[in-house]
Amino acid sequence: IRCIGVSNRDFVEGMSGGTWVDVVLEHGGCVTVMAQDKPTVDIELVTTTVSNMAEVRSYCYEASISDMASDSRCPTQGEAYLDKQSDTQYVCKRTLVDRGWGNGCGLFGKGSLVTCAKFTCSKKMTGKSIQPENLEYRIMLSVHGSQHSGMIVNDTGYETDENRAKVEVTPNSPRAEATLGGFGSLGLDCEPRTGLDFSDLYYLTMNNKHWLVHKEWFHDIPLPWHAGADTGTPHWNNKEALVEFKDAHAKRQTVVVLGSQEGAVHTALAGALEAEMDGAKGKLFSGHLKCRLKMDKLRLKGVSYSLCTAAFTFTKVPAETLHGTVTVEVQYAGTDGPCKIPVQMAVDMQTLTPVGRLITANPVITESTENSKMMLELDPPFGDSYIVIGVGDKKITHHWHRSGSTIGKAFEATVRGAKRMAVLGDTAWDFGSVGGVFNSLGKGIHQIFGAAFKSLFGGMSWFSQILIGTLLVWLGLNTKNGSISLTCLALGGVMIFLSTAVSA
């Protein structure tokens, strides 16, 4: 259960009878995928790494000078000259100064003066180019299975845990398959586009800190620079940016070097996208990844198990997540596992009318040892309800109150669905055939309105939902006002479609 501690969480529900669903994975976010007769899966884009970055340009932001020398000439005696002028490691300046009897010249006039100092770069920052084909995306998957609280967001041991898996995709191999043991396998067909235009970005490294910066900004930095990788004795261009020549006297000129420019660069980098280094690879934390999940090989585990009949206890007080759902960790005293956990939410304890829904599909106890633990997640209705676990006299209950409203949740879900469709863009549509167009249209309606429909009408039977949709269509056909007619027709059509397409 990876997503319960992530604030940016998206719930995606598969269409009834569908074998695939489109998701948008982004750094700092987590996606929970639910479908009829399929286990619930949490998917998170953990890291995006980039390798084989080529150094484009380096800037010196802290330097020192040494070996200063000057040469001067009297008027009419030609130009002052130093051998160091031809050495690229030196920074030199030529000027004219007033000369006369007082400073060793027989004539009054302008004399030539040249001053040089050896330039040494102490600290530099480097910009590297990123090729999209060198990106690698690491995705962690977790099935809502027989897990306890100690396994949440624990990325170790996934090789031997059938509840978890790690997959890596690249532009050259965008397809992967996550093996989930008894739950089958989940196929991923990803489109490795981060949403960032790397043709316009460089990877900047300064003092063990890293950013993504725009090329134009990078090339306009007014500091000494050299092109390409460091060859040991780089040729620094624009050395004068960190060196200041003071007022010249008759035979000498003082040279000083400016202080470190790291603070000024940090100020200019305010708002830039931060990154990290992992050995020789860069780690990015921006952008998104679009994936199509193929769920035809994914299956529920323990459908044929019998119900657990022994007593359950709450190991922890049920807690609310950031998303309005409830996490419950229970301990089973029996030894008759594997068995299914009898769990439901009810409005009252007399009729036990089921409300809400299970995020953890078909929760089971897989071990036959005593005191096995299991964590599950529920989506309670707004208002008061009861969490009921167990059967008969051994069942345990917990009162729950959820604040908020169904309308607010439906609106929030619609906005999130619209954002998801905007990110998917043209990849969500198939114009290759008439059937493809209608299929894409259905998927689009489901992406945007599916979660809201589930919130508003999830407790009704599909037949009642179709009746309401048919009534809206009838009202649309018999209303003389054009805008009201079109609105009723659209709402009725969407409702009829979703009542037959969205899983219960």
Rank of each mutant, 00 (worst) to 15 (best):
R9N: 06
D10V: 04
V12Q: 07
E13T: 03
E13F: 07
G14I: 06
L25V: 11
G28T: 13
V33P: 02
Q36D: 06
T40S: 10
E44D: 11
T49K: 08
S51V: 06
S51I: 05
E62S: 13
D67V: 10
M68T: 15
S72H: 08
P75C: 08
T76A: 15
E79N: 10
A80M: 13
Q85E: 07
T88V: 02
T88G: 01
V91P: 00
V91H: 11
V97L: 04
R99T: 07
W101L: 00
N103E: 05
G104L: 03
S112E: 14
S112R: 00
L113Q: 11
L113Y: 02
K118V: 00
C121G: 06
S122F: 10
K123P: 00
M125E: 05
S129L: 15
L135A: 02
L135Q: 06
E136I: 00
Y137S: 02
S142E: 05
H144S: 04
Q147M: 11
Q147V: 00
M151Q: 03
N154Q: 12
T156P: 14
N163I: 03
R164C: 15
A165S: 15
E168H: 02
P171L: 07
E177R: 04
G182P: 02
S185K: 01
L188H: 11
L188F: 13
R193D: 06
T194P: 00
T194M: 00
D197Y: 05
D197G: 13
Y202T: 14
K209Q: 11
L212K: 07
L212Y: 06
V213A: 12
H214T: 04
H214L: 06
D220I: 07
P224D: 08
H226S: 07
A227I: 03
G228E: 13
N238R: 09
L242W: 10
F245H: 06
F245A: 02
T254R: 00
V255R: 00
G263A: 07
G263P: 08
A264C: 08
A268N: 11
A272E: 08
A275T: 15
D278N: 11
G279T: 01
K281V: 12
G282V: 14
K290L: 07
K294Q: 08
D296K: 06
L298G: 00
Y305P: 02
T309K: 14
A311I: 06
T315V: 12
V317W: 02
P318W: 08
A319D: 06
E320A: 14
G324W: 09
T325L: 03
V326A: 15
Q331I: 14
G337D: 12
K340A: 03
M345H: 09
D348L: 00
D348Q: 02
T351I: 07
V355G: 13
G356N: 06
R357D: 08
I359S: 01
N362C: 06
V364Q: 03
I365P: 04
L376M: 09
E377Q: 10
D379G: 10
F382H: 08
F382G: 01
D384M: 13
D384I: 13
I387A: 02
D393R: 00
T397R: 06
W400T: 08
H401R: 08
R402G: 12
S405M: 07
S405A: 01
K409Q: 14
E412Y: 13
A413T: 15
R416W: 10
R420C: 09
G425Q: 07
A428C: 02
A428F: 14
V434M: 13
V434P: 13
G435A: 15
G435W: 13
N439C: 14
S440R: 04
G442W: 10
G442R: 14
I448E: 12
A452G: 07
G458P: 11
G458C: 11
M460T: 13
I468Q: 04
G469R: 00
T470Y: 11
T470F: 15
L472M: 12
L477Q: 04
N478P: 05
T479Q: 03
N481L: 02
S483F: 13
S483L: 05
I484C: 11
I484M: 13
S485F: 12
C488F: 12
L491Y: 12
G493T: 01
L498R: 02
L498F: 12
T500W: 12
S503P: 06
S503H: 04
